[in-house]
Amino acid sequence: MKKLSLLTLGAALIAVPVLAAPGGAKADAEGNGTLTRAEVQTNATAMFAKMDANGDGKLDQADRAAKRSEMQAKAFERFDANKDGQISKAEWDQHAADRAAKRAAKKAERGEKRAEAGEPGKRGPGMRGHHGKRGGHHGMRGGMMMKADTDGDKAISAAEFQTAALARFDAADANKDGQVTADERQAQRAAKKEKRAEWRAKRAAAAASPAN
Results as ranks from 00 to 15, higher is better:
Gln86Asp: 15
Gly126His: 09
Ala73Tyr: 03
Glu198Pro: 02
Asn32Glu: 10
Asp28Lys: 14
Val40Asn: 07
Ala104Asn: 11
Met144Trp: 14
Glu112Ala: 15
Ala207Cys: 06
Ala100Leu: 07
Ala207Lys: 15
Lys122Trp: 06
Lys2Thr: 11
Gly129Lys: 02
Ala207Met: 10
Ala53Lys: 15
Val18Thr: 07
Gly24Met: 07
His137Ser: 09
Gly31Glu: 07
Leu6Glu: 14
Ala204Pro: 02
Glu160Leu: 05
Trp92His: 11
Ala105Phe: 04
Ala171Glu: 15
Pro210Lys: 13
Pro22Gly: 03
Lys192Trp: 04
Lys74Arg: 09
Ala44Asp: 00
Gly23Ser: 12
Glu116Lys: 14
Glu160Ile: 09
Lys133Ile: 03
Leu7Pro: 01
Leu9Ala: 08
Arg196Lys: 11
Asp151Pro: 02
Pro17Trp: 10
Glu77Tyr: 00
Lys122Pro: 00
Ala155His: 03
Asp177Glu: 03
Ala101Asp: 12
Lys102Ala: 15
Gln162Ala: 15
Asn43Phe: 15
Gly55Trp: 10
Gly10Cys: 06
Lys58Asp: 01
Lys74Met: 11
Ala164Met: 13
Pro125Arg: 10
His131Cys: 01
Asp153Phe: 05
Ser5Met: 13
Ala158Ser: 09
Ala21Leu: 11
Lys133Phe: 13
Lys2His: 12
Gly178Tyr: 00
Asn43Ile: 04
Val16Lys: 12
Gly126Trp: 00
Lys193Leu: 07
Lys113Pro: 01
Asp28Pro: 04
Gly121His: 09
Ala90Ser: 15
Gly129Cys: 14
Glu39Asp: 11
Arg196Gln: 13
Ala174Met: 07
Arg103Thr: 14
Pro210His: 11
Gly124Val: 03
Glu198Val: 06
Asp177Arg: 00
Ala20Gly: 08
Ala187Lys: 01
Leu19Glu: 03
Glu160Gly: 08
Trp199Pro: 00
Thr45Glu: 14
Val40Ile: 13
Met1Ile: 05
Val16Phe: 02
Arg141Pro: 01
Ala197Arg: 10
Ala211Gln: 13
Thr150Ala: 15
Val18Ser: 07
Gly85Thr: 06
